[in-house]
């Protein structure tokens, strides 16, 4: 029922990319995303796409799985592309009734499409190769300097990792409650919007109760282990840069140089 969401899910396998330090991957993804916005040039996108393809190959994630991750944004993608095609002024190449398609519009639409696709695939690449725990861990370390200006970095990271951890649990729970109510004759499909919304009450009430119960249990368990926030807290597996991370940063710098060169001179 609700299991078809791949956005932000970890894909378990062994590869060089999986082994990288989460900080490297976070910085890498960040740089990659920015690089997509600096230049609007077909060669830049081809270069960025081949870099992503290389990452996919290294990561041992099946390409079909990557494409499946695009599903949630397919509507947005088509919508943006069509809109761009229709509203960009310029040299008219086709007129259908009141709609005109321009040469510039087609170009713009292709750029937008490429940009969005690479954007989502690029960030999926990171979440597919990094467990949520490592990801928030990396984020916490990267944001550590903000502690100086009293930003509760540790608390934010902890809240994020708890939220991420609970998404699959609550999804399973929803599935189970829906099935239990179906077995009691509940009907989630027929009727108008108001009836459908009403039919969700028997799902939402138990779901909220269970979420509160779980939150309570978790708080109690953390308290029992003397959790008191980030101060003086050590880690079992502290993040440490290894030689492969420096290699990755080097590749990233080369990629950035490539993008700038291509963007400037082609």
């Amino acid at each position: 029922m609700l299991r078809d969401i791949t956005l932000g899910q970890y894909y378990q396998t062994e590869s060089k990319l999986h082994e990288l330090d989460p900080r490297t991957k976070l910085v890498g993804t960040f740089v990659y995303l920015i690089s997509l916005f600096v230049f609007t040039n077909a060669y830049v996108y081809i270069f960025a796409a081949s870099f992503l393809l290389l990452c996919v190959l290294i990561s041992h994630i099946p390409p079909t799985y990557m494409i499946k991750g695009m599903k949630p944004i397919i509507f947005l993608l088509v919508f943006t592309m069509v809109l761009n095609m229709l509203v960009t002024p310029g040299e008219v190449i086709l007129t259908l009734w009141k709609l005109t398609i321009t040469k510039e519009g087609v170009k713009q639409a292709l750029y937008m499409g490429a940009r969005l696709t690479l954007l989502v695939m690029g960030s999926n690449m990171m979440t597919l190769t990094t467990t949520p725990t490592r990801l928030t861990n990396g984020l916490e370390r990267l944001m550590a300097p903000l502690k100086l200006i009293k930003v509760p970095v540790h608390e934010i990271a902890m809240m994020m990792s708890i939220a991420l951890r609970f998404i699959p649990i609550l999804m399973d729970e929803t599935d189970r409650i829906m099935k239990a109510q179906l077995a009691r004759g509940a009907d989630f499909e027929s009727g108008n919007l108001i009836k459908k919304a009403k039919s969700l009450v028997p799902v939402l009430v138990p779901l909220f109760i269970s979420a509160f119960r779980r939150a309570n249990d978790l708080a109690m368990a953390m308290e029992a282990r003397c959790y008191h926030g980030g101060k003086g807290r050590t880690q079992m597996k502290p993040l440490k840069y290894r030689p492969r991370d420096f290699v990755a940063y080097l590749i990233l710098i080369l990629y950035l140089a490539g993008i700038i060169l291509i963007g400037r001179y082609l």
Partner: peptide, 27 residues
């Protein structure tokens, strides 16, 4: 009739009586 594991996690009504009426009304 199917009773799931931990069926008490599916309760949602305000009284026991309404809770038990939920099924018959649906059917």
């Amino acid at each position: 009739g199917l009773v799931f594991q931990y069926p008490e996690h599916q309760l949602f009504e305000d009284t026991v009586f309404n809770e038990v009426c939920f099924g018959p009304k649906n059917f």
